[in-house]
Design a protein around this nucleic acid. Structure first.
Lengths: 354, 354
DNA sequence: TTTAGCACTCTCGATTGTTTAGTGCTAACT
DNA sequence: AGTTAGCACTAAACAATCGAGAGTGCTAAA
C-alpha cells in the first residue's frame, strides 16, 4: 500500500533498526534522545526527531500519544524482519543445548513435534506450538487389521499422505480371524482410494454384500474409517508453555490474552493460516497482516517440517509483536533442521553403548 | 483442624449459606445489610454482624479489610459444598442440551473424554478438562502386529488395564510376514506380563536369541513397548475452554492465572491429585487444601468415569473458588452418567434411520 | 438475646498540582 | 540544504488530598 524499502535512506533504515531493537529489548516507546545517546548515529536528537516524524508518516512507526517515544508499527516490524534483521549467530552452547534437549529418540511424529514445540518454548521463552497441517482429500491406500479379542479388533489405515492411523473397533457381535481376513480383503479391494467425502451408501452396500450382509460390522468399520479420514483432513495443533505469555506486559490485559487463548481453542484459524503456506523456510506472521485475522497483536513464527519431500508438520512460537526475531528465527531454523534430521535418518540401535 | 459443622447453630449455617451464595453470584464481599435485606432471616443487621464475627473467628469467613463485607474462606466453601449446598435440579432443557451435545457417537475413549471436557466447559462456563489417570505398573497381556510395508509395521499392545495402544515401528532393514509372525509369537511368549520397569537387558537377550539375533528389530520393538507402557503409566491431561478463565476477575491478575497455566503445563501435579482419588462420586478440591499444593486460588471439580468397574478417566472443570458449585456438581454428574452410558452400552448401528 | 445508634476504619473515585519525557517548530549555523 | 540548539507545548505518570460510601465493632437500651 505504500513506500517500499528502497525509498528509505540508509540513515532512516539505521534509525528504524535501532528503534525496533531498542523496543524489543525494553518494551517501551523509544525516544530520539535514547537513540542519539546509545548509538553510532552521529547526529543530534533533533535530526533523529525529524527522521522519526517522516518514518511515522510513512507508516513504519507509531506514537502512543503526543509526548511518548515511537513504537514500531506492524509494517515497521515487517520491514525489519525482511530486510534489516541481522542474522543471529547461535553460540556453540545454544546449539549444544538444542541437541541435548532433542536427543531423546522418539519414533512417532506426533511425539517428536510435541517435544520440539516444548523445546522451542523453553529456548525462546515464548509460547511454542506444533501442528500437523490440514491435508485435503487424503485417501486410504491400504487397510490392515489385527484381532484383539472376540469383540474387538484394531483397524489400521495407511493414508495417501504417508500417515498411519489406527482405531480400536468394538462390536457386540462376535468376530474371528476368518471374518476379519475377509473384511480386510474386502476393504482393500472396495474401499481404497476414497477420501472422507466419497464414502457413500453405495460403497457400504457393496461392502455389505461382500460380507454376508454383516451390517453391524460394516457400519462400525465405515464409521471408524470416516473418522480417521476426517482426522487426517483436519490437522492438529498443540500448544506448550502458555504460561510464558504472562511475563510479557502486552498479554497481561485480558483483551489480547483472550484473543490468543480463543484462537488456540478454536484451532481452525491458526491451522488455516499455517496450512496455506508451503515453503521450507521459517515464516513470520506479524499481527493480523495476513488475510486471516486471528491474531491481532501477536507474532507467529514457524518453520515447516518436511520429510520425504512432504510437509508433515510445523513447529513455531507465538509471542508479542516485539519478539526477539533474530534469536527466534535462528532457533527455529536450527530446531527444524534437527527434526528433519531425526525424521530422515535411518533408525539406530536403541543406544545401549557397548 | 477446628470446629465441625455440628457446632454451628442453624442460624449460623443459614447465614453462611446466604453469604456464600451471594458471593458466588456477585463476586464481591457481602455485608450484613445485604443479608438482612434480601433474605428470609428475620433479624437485624446487627445480629447478623455478631454472627458474622463469630463465623469469622471460627474460620469460615474472611474480611479483605476492615470496612469491607465478608468473603467465604476455603473452609467456608468446604462446609458449604459438604453440608449446606442444595442440590441443583437441572432443567429439562439443560438435560436435553447435554444429550444433544454428547450425541455424536464416538468410539475412542480419548475422543469421548475430549469431547466431554469441551461440553463441560461450555455448559458450566468454566474451564474444562479430561484426564486419563496414572496407572501404575501396567503390563502387557497381548501383542499383535500388522505389516505396513517392507520397512514398517504396526505394533499393538493390549494392556492389563484394558487399554489398547499402537505404535508405528520403522526399520531400515527389511521385514516380511514371516519375520513378523515370529516376532509376534516370541513377544507373546517372552515379554508378556512385564511392566515398564521390568523390561531388562536379559529379556531383550532372550528375545534376540529367539529371533536369529536380529538386534535392530528387537531394539526398535522393545523401545516402542517401553514407550507405550510409560505412556500408559503416566496418564494424560487435556484442557479446553481456557479462555473462559479470563472472564472471572480472580484470574485477571497474572499471579493466579500463571499458577494455573503452569499447573496445566506440568500436568503432573493435577494428574497426581486426581489419580489418587478413586471413588465414583463427583469430587471437589478447593484451593490448596489438598496435600498437593497445585492450585492455590481455584477450585477443581471432577467426576471419575468408570467402565467395566474400572476408573478409566475423569472429566471436570476448574474455576474460581466462588464457583457455582450446585450447577457444576449437577452438570458433571449428569455428563459423567451420560459418558458411562456411552462406554457401556452395546455398539449400535451407525444411525442410518429406517 | 436482640437491636438501634454511633464512632471508626478503610477503600474508592475525583480533583489537583507537579514532574517528566518526549515531541514539533523555528531560527540560527555550517 | 541539511543539521542543530533551544524552547514552547503536550500528555502521561505520580502523589497528595478530600469526600463519599460501605461496613464494621461496640455500647447501651429494649
Amino acid at each position: 500500500m505504500s513506500a517500499n524499502s528502497n525509498e528509505l535512506s540508509d540513515r532512516k533504515k539505521l534509525i528504524l533498526k535501532a528503534i525496533v531493537e531498542a523496543h524489543i529489548r525494553g518494551g517501551e516507546p523509544v525516544g530520539s534522545k535514547y537513540i542519539t545517546e546509545s548509538k553510532q548515529l552521529s547526529c543530534s536528537s533533533a535530526t533523529i526527531r525529524n527522521e522519526m516524524a517522516e518514518l511515522e508518516s510513512l507508516g513504519y512507526l507509531e506514537q502512543p500519544h503526543t509526548s511518548a517515544g515511537r513504537v514500531p508499527s506492524k509494517q515497521g516490524y515487517r520491514l525489519y524482519v525482511d530486510t534489516l534483521l541481522e542474522e543471529y549467530a547461535m553460540t556453540a552452547k545454544e546449539i549444544a543445548q538444542i541437541n541435548q534437549l532433542m536427543k531423546i529418540k522418539m519414533s512417532e511424529l506426533d511425539q517428536i513435534l510435541d517435544k520440539a514445540s516444548k523445546v522451542a518454548s523453553v529456548l525462546t521463552n515464548y509460547t511454542g506450538f506444533a501442528i500437523k497441517p490440514r491435508a485435503h482429500a487424503v485417501t486410504v491406500t491400504k487397510y490392515e487389521t489385527a484381532l484383539i479379542d472376540a469383540h474387538s479388533f484394531i483397524l489400521i489405515v495407511v493414508a495417501s499422505n504417508g500417515a498411519v492411523k489406527t482405531r480400536n473397533v468394538l462390536l457386540d457381535t462376535e468376530i474371528d480371524e476368518y471374518v476379519l481376513a475377509r473384511l480386510t480383503a474386502a476393504l482393500n479391494e472396495l474401499v481404497v482410494g476414497l477420501d472422507a467425502e466419497q464414502i457413500s451408501l453405495s460403497v457400504m452396500i457393496s461392502l455389505e454384500n461382500r460380507l454376508s450382509g454383516d451390517s453391524v460390522l460394516v457400519n462400525a468399520v465405515m464409521k471408524s474409517i470416516y473418522e480417521m479420514l476426517s482426522e487426517l483432513d483436519s490437522g492438529e495443533l498443540k500448544v506448550s508453555g502458555l504460561d510464558r505469555l504472562l511475563q510479557y506486559p502486552e498479554f497481561t490485559d485480558a483483551q489480547n490474552l483472550g484473543e490468543l487463548l480463543g484462537a488456540f481453542e478454536r484451532k481452525d484459524d491458526i491451522l488455516d493460516l499455517i496450512s496455506e503456506i508451503d515453503g521450507e523456510d521459517v515464516n513470520v506472521v506479524i499481527g493480523k497482516e495476513s488475510s486471516v485475522k486471528v491474531i491481532n497483536n501477536s507474532t507467529l513464527v514457524f518453520k515447516p517440517i518436511r520429510s520425504n519431500g512432504r510437509t508433515v508438520g510445523a513447529i513455531g512460537v507465538i509471542g508479542p509483536l516485539r519478539m526477539d526475531y533474530a534469536r527466534v528465527l535462528a532457533t527455529l531454523d536450527n530446531l527444524g533442521g534437527n527434526i528433519s534430521h531425526l525424521l530422515n535418518e535411518p533408525k539406530q540401535l536403541g543406544g545401549k553403548s557397548q
